[in-house]
Structures are given as C-alpha cells and as structure tokens.
C-alpha cells in the first residue's frame, strides 16, 4: 500500500511552473528522500500533499485519500522548513496546543508530551518559553510535535537544519527507530550524506521535474566501471584489454589499479579470462560506485538553480531557471 502517490502532478504560481508532471509513489514503511536544488519544487510538492497549496493539475493522494483531506492530515506529522513557533508558548504548551488540534485526548497528551520531548532530547526545557530555545532545540521541538499523535506518515522538511552533528546523528537514529515501528517517513533534506544513510528510496527533482528516482543503490551504482589490479610485480595488460575493445586507464593516485570501462553488451568476464591466460594473479576487482552526492551533482550538473516558487503576486512573465526546458 502506498502512503503517498502522485500522478502527473502539476502546480503553477501565476506563470511559474513549480511542478511539471511529477509522479512518485512512497510505500508504507519506507524512508523516502526527496532531493533537489533550491526552488526545485520539493516544498511545493509537500505543501500540495498536505493541502497547504492547491494543485493545478494531476492527482495526489495521501494515505489513500485525496491530498489535503482532513482525515488524511490527521494521520500525518509534519515539520515544515523555516517553521516559526509562537514564542509565547513553552515547549510543553505548544505540544499541548498542536496535540489538541490533532484531537489527542488530554490525558494522552499529558502522558505523551514529556515522553516525546524526552525522545528528542529537550524534556529538560519543556517548561521554558520557546523564544529562549536555540535553533537546534526548536528543530527538535518541531520533530516532536510531528510525532506526538503517533502518525502513520511523517513528513520532515529539512529536519536537521540547524542541528549540530551529534544531534543529527540522534535524529537519524530516531528516524530509523520510527521506521522499525512501522512509520513511513518522507524526508526532504539538503544533507545528502544523511539521506544516503537512512533512505530506502530517493527522488531527485530538478526545476519541477522528477529527473531520477530509485533506491540508493540504483542511484549510486556506476554500471560498467571496474577497478582492477594484479599481484605486486606483475604489469596489468592494459594494451591487450584495449585490443579486446575495452577502455583501460590508470586510476589516479593508485598506479597499481586500472579502471576498465564496459560498453553496452560487454561483460567483465573476458578481461578476467585474459588476466588468467597471461598467468597473472587477480588481486583486486571492484565495481565502482559513487556517493549520492556524486550522483546528485551529476544529475543536476549544468542546470541552473530553480527559483523559489513561493506564491507572490504575479507581475510579468518570468522564466524559470535560465533556459527554456520545453
């Protein structure tokens, strides 16, 4: 069962197209990461799902209900980017307020608020005014308010923004625990290292278009590129490999290794056979991978950043990015 599903989802603000036919599907129990440059449409996608902004076209479903439906929102916890909590609340009273809006009974709120704040590590300051909180504490409070009503789906927009490295690790571990408990998490983050560590699937948005989607392994895999090395004292037969129709170049900073690239339809097996036929001993063979950051940069490289698509009064026609993508 999918907890989020969009089909050809479109959103325009005036003449600005923020989402251009985005189709994604998030399954129950997954941690799903959404990546993209500033203005790529990530936050707009989340807002459409929660009914904060209205879609222009296409379909969007949240927990099997039309996006924005109150009964679906009741089962979602949301931490927005750049959230601002009223400074006149304490951590406890804010949780109590939001819990009441979610319909959490008062007894349950009394019990769960300290527990949840303990979970994010700010229970000791729960009776202090929020205006005295640091950025990281506010972020932890934001996560806590999204968890209070035990939602099926948790949508976190930049949850580690402003949080120190130790805190980031705690939040990652928290998300893992939530996943183990059966919660689905939809994560929007610029910190690609974190996304790579915890997400099951990732989508990359670029200027309102879904440009890549898949598992972390799918995105980081570099099909057809191998690092290969033979025993010390032996010379890798690069010329013979090239004669077989492969490319073979030394790996920078690792002179004992060569990078062998395959073309369409080729396998690495003939190269291995060649090494053995020449009486050499194979000591190193690894299919090369890239980090998620590499994959992301490779995907968006060359593209100019999008625009911040928050609604403004339309004045004149504006070009999204720096070029016509039609």
């Amino acid at each position: 069962m999918s907890v989020i599903e969009t089909r050809d989802l479109r959103k325009t603000y005036g003449r600005v197209e923020a989402l251009k036919g985005v189709s994604i599907r998030v399954e129950k129990g997954q941690i799903y990461g959404l990546l993209g440059q500033n203005g790529a449409g990530k936050t707009t996608l989340i807002k459409v799902l929660l009914g904060i902004v209205r879609k222009t076209d296409g379909e969007a479903e949240l927990l099997g209900r039309p996006a924005g439906a109150p009964d679906a929102r009741r089962r979602v916890g949301y931490l927005p980017e750049d959230h601002q909590f009223p400074g006149y609340h304490t951590g406890y009273s804010l949780m109590d307020f939001y819990g009441a809006l979610y319909g959490v009974p008062v007894d349950e709120r009394r019990r769960k608020i300290p527990e949840t704040l303990e979970l994010v590590g700010i229970a000791g300051r729960m009776n202090s005014k929020i205006r005295t909180y640091s950025k990281g504490m506010k972020q932890r409070l934001g996560i806590a308010q999204a968890l209070l009503h035990d939602p099926d789906l948790i949508i976190l927009d930049e949850p580690t923004d402003g949080v120190d490295p130790l805190g980031r690790r705690e939040i990652r571990e928290l998300m893992q625990r939530l996943k183990e408990r059966g919660h689905s998490i939809f994560l929007n983050s610029h910190l690609l290292g974190e996304v790579e560590l915890i997400c099951d699937r990732v989508a990359i948005l670029q200027q309102g278009v879904l440009v890549r989607e898949g598992t972390i392994a799918d995105l980081t895999q570099q099909k057809g590129r191998y690092e290969i090395g033979v025993a010390p004292g032996q010379a890798f037969p690069a010329d013979a490999v090239i004669k077989l129709g492969y490319s073979a170049i030394p790996v920078p900073d690792k002179p004992e290794l060569f990078e062998v690239s395959l073309t369409e339809g080729q396998t690495i097996d003939p190269v291995i056979k060649l090494v053995y036929d020449k009486g050499m001993q194979l000591r190193h063979l690894v299919e090369r991978k890239q980090t998620l950051e590499d994959a992301f940069l490779a995907t968006v490289e060359g593209a100019e950043p999008g625009v911040d698509t928050r609604p403004r009064r339309p004045r004149a026609a504006r070009q999204v990015g720096g070029r016509d993508r039609k």
Binding site: L50, P70, P80, D82, H83
Partner: peptide
C-alpha cells in the same frame, strides 16, 4: 497576522482543522 506568518500558518493548516 501572526497566525498567517510564513512558517506558522503551514504548521496549523497541516493539522486536521479547516
């Protein structure tokens, strides 16, 4: 205006209240 402030209104609208 405080209710409608960016960063505040999103939190409230995302709750199950019309």
């Amino acid at each position: 205006p405080n209710l409608l402030r960016k960063g505040s209104v999103d939190l409230l609208i995302s709750k199950p209240i019309s």
